[in-house]
């Protein structure tokens, strides 16, 4: 299969604000698209996730792979089609940037632990328990499916001086991401 790096839509391109539709057909062309999407994610510097609408395909498909980050719990390469958050817990603030928003990063509050139901690229149901950085990546990408950017969820810089949730253990999860 010949893979291609696709063009990433850059905000304020209004197409990024549009809601994506569920995938219904699992065929060869879907697999081909997902391979291209992954190639695009890996081509960008430091990209740990990508969503189909970022390349102008408005279907509910995301890819996340945070395995390149040391010391972070992860499930490796994940293709999630039609993902839904089934359960969520905790609230943490971390810094995010986006392939579709060059030269800007900001602090965003996310669920710390989530359970995600999705199907893989072959249509097989999957459920994932995830936390921290990986959970943040999935939430960031799932937002793209609903036309939301991290810019829609920024928390104020000053707000971060007073974390609302207590820190767990020695690791300061809230701001570590």
């Amino acid at each position: 299969m010949i893979m291609a790096v696709l063009e990433i839509l850059v905000y304020p391109d209004q197409r990024l604000k549009q809601k994506s539709q569920p995938v219904e057909v699992f065929d060869e062309s879907l697999l081909h698209f997902i391979a291209d999407l992954e190639e695009t994610m890996r081509a960008g510097p430091g990209g740990v996730g990508i969503a189909a609408p970022q390349v102008g395909r408005f279907e509910r498909i995301i890819i996340v792979d945070v395995s390149c980050k040391p010391k972070i719990k992860n499930h490796g390469r994940l293709v999630m089609v039609n993902p839904e958050i089934a359960d969520k817990e905790g609230n943490v603030v971390g810094r995010e940037g986006c392939l579709s928003v060059p030269d800007y990063t900001g602090k965003v509050a996310r669920w710390d632990r989530i359970v995600v139901n999705a199907v893989d690229e072959f249509g097989k149901p999957q459920a994932y328990n995830m936390e921290g950085y990986e959970a943040r990546a999935v939430q960031h990408e799932m937002d793209h499916l609903d036309g939301l950017l991290f810019l829609d969820r920024l928390v104020s810089r000053r707000g971060s001086l007073f974390p609302r949730t207590p820190l767990r253990g020695v690791e300061k999860k809230a701001d570590a991401c």
Partner: peptide, 11 residues
């Protein structure tokens, strides 16, 4: 005094 690393998520 606490130091924590900032690992920016880009996606």
């Amino acid at each position: 005094v606490h130091l924590s690393e900032i690992d920016i998520l880009r996606g």
